[in-house]
Design a protein around this nucleic acid. Sequence first.
DNA 1: TACTTTGTCGCAAACGGTTTCGTGTTGATA
DNA 2: TATCAACACGAAACCGTTTGCGACAAAGTA
Lengths: 341, 341
Amino acid sequence: MKKKITLKHIARELDVSISTVSKALKNSEEISADTKEKIQAFAKLYNYKPNNIAVSLKNKSTKNIGVVIPDIVHHFFTTVFRGIEIYANAKGYNVIACISDESFAKEVLSMEMLSNGSVDGFIMSLSAETEQKNDFNHLKEVAAQGIPLVLFDRVTDEVKCDKVILNDKEIAYKAVIKLIDEGRQRIALVTTESYFNVSEKRSAGYSAAHLDRKMPIDEDLCLILHHKEVNLEAIKDFFEKQQVDAVLCVNELFAVQCMGVAQKMGFQIPKDISFIGFTDGILSQNSQPALTTVAQHGEKMGAVAAELLINKIEDEAEEESIDCRTEIIEATLIERDSTIN
Amino acid sequence: MKKKITLKHIARELDVSISTVSKALKNSEEISADTKEKIQAFAKLYNYKPNNIAVSLKNKSTKNIGVVIPDIVHHFFTTVFRGIEIYANAKGYNVIACISDESFAKEVLSMEMLSNGSVDGFIMSLSAETEQKNDFNHLKEVAAQGIPLVLFDRVTDEVKCDKVILNDKEIAYKAVIKLIDEGRQRIALVTTESYFNVSEKRSAGYSAAHLDRKMPIDEDLCLILHHKEVNLEAIKDFFEKQQVDAVLCVNELFAVQCMGVAQKMGFQIPKDISFIGFTDGILSQNSQPALTTVAQHGEKMGAVAAELLINKIEDEAEEESIDCRTEIIEATLIERDSTIN
DNA sequence: TACTTTGTCGCAAACGGTTTCGTGTTGATA
DNA sequence: TATCAACACGAAACCGTTTGCGACAAAGTA
């Protein structure tokens, strides 16, 4: 096992100083062609690579970015992560992933672990518990330390930083309008607890569409489901009690589950009832019938978030730009077979 | 914006030496109770946290582990990643994620980026291209440098290191036996190109089951599909040409797609035809009918991989243990509605 | 009084680089 | 021959911590 070779080794071996080696490897004009060639050849031979940690310490820049997300076994977050990773990698950055698992404590812990110099900046989406508690001190702390921070999707106005969000309200509005234009009268909204920022915005779009088309908003048409639970009974109950001819779900899992229940109850999709979901994942693409859904373009969102962050990181040298940008990713409605074309 | 505070700042402020501060914060016996108290109070007040990078450089240990996987938008890898992250975090390690995207070049690049001191060890699963090319020099390189390495799922015998694999052959055998016991006569195998180590092992299990039950192996019953492509036509073709009454698919996507095609062709599942897939993901759980599938216990696999790696990392101080362990994760067959109970 | 012990603390090297500045050698110029 | 610029390289500081060891004072011992 050959241990990692350092500048010191090369210097000793070639009988020059460490600084000469360092300069030679950076092709500095200070060093003669002969010496450079000799040193570079030796370095290549022994496969010398500068120690990243040492460089980080010296430069006060780690080329790492911390990504803190609530869940990784989830199509949307996964695609965002992918977008971040690809963009960051292209820019020479590595991505350290922390999964908060929707827990406030883990989110705080993760940020503390990483904010001691391990990363140059953070990209994150709030955990459910954080949104619920409305406690953002860990974010403010990080921001106060001058560590760049970008929030995406699940954001908060409490923290001054760059943000990347979806036009949730508008796309929900558009989806509901489409259902109304299909001739649907009783459009259900299947959503999560309201402390989710995004769910709220989607609800707003739902309401706005009804208002614009002068349709009544029936509170009973809103079904609240819980994540991580089997909701089939609740869904069946809901369909039995309410006359529903269209359903907008805030995620694809709910949509597919609702479709399943409806089918078992004998409904024809989309003849009797239409379905639209959020997130264009494998579920939507492979359900029977294929689900009309809102594509959130997670990869794009991730790339934009990474771009914002890296710009902040690299501009920081110049001056503190206090301006906070909020980029909006335009969602698109992908029409498939669970709605009428 | 308050910049990060260092030992030097504290030392200057309290008019003691840097080493005194360092020792005081570690509760060293060398320092008097008075001084310790004073320093600790000051440190707490200013929220001092040691700079991770400096500690890493000093200790030659980063508390980071690199995870290189072919795909993140994929249920199995996602769950493994989750398992790694949870275990590693509990042990005080952070996880740097690199997605090879099934590309050999990206895999090599990722490892080069990280092997310059950024991580204490690697956990990885080979990219498709790497398995195809059979080129493992980047892995050997890392191993030669003494950086601990653990391979999981897509492994190779070419590299001496710890491995975590599934009992692919046995569980495939078991699945096929189940189908035979259902009375199925023509069991199809839907798989990927054979350079995938795991696909091969699953094929072997398929064959072994046929052999054991003295059933003929019909080459025509094997359908090879390509990832990332729409295969519906090929599947339909296959079902039309071949008389098939059961299907074993090497992943859940293929299984769900095959079920969809079969249903459209008028087959009743599981009356006319049974389906078993691999990977117990959201597709399997939410398909119609729910898919009988092989649970790979990705999270467990990730945890075991992380455990092996961290043990290697932390034992390394003692001596080079050249022994390479191969842990086998026992897959389980989850019986749902796509097979007869 | 002289010497040793004990308790506190600082010095300095080390981790592996980068970079500024200085120094010695050469050859050209006056 | 004295002066000087150009060239090639080395010394040393620095990034923030850790840690072995030496220093120094107070206190104990002979």
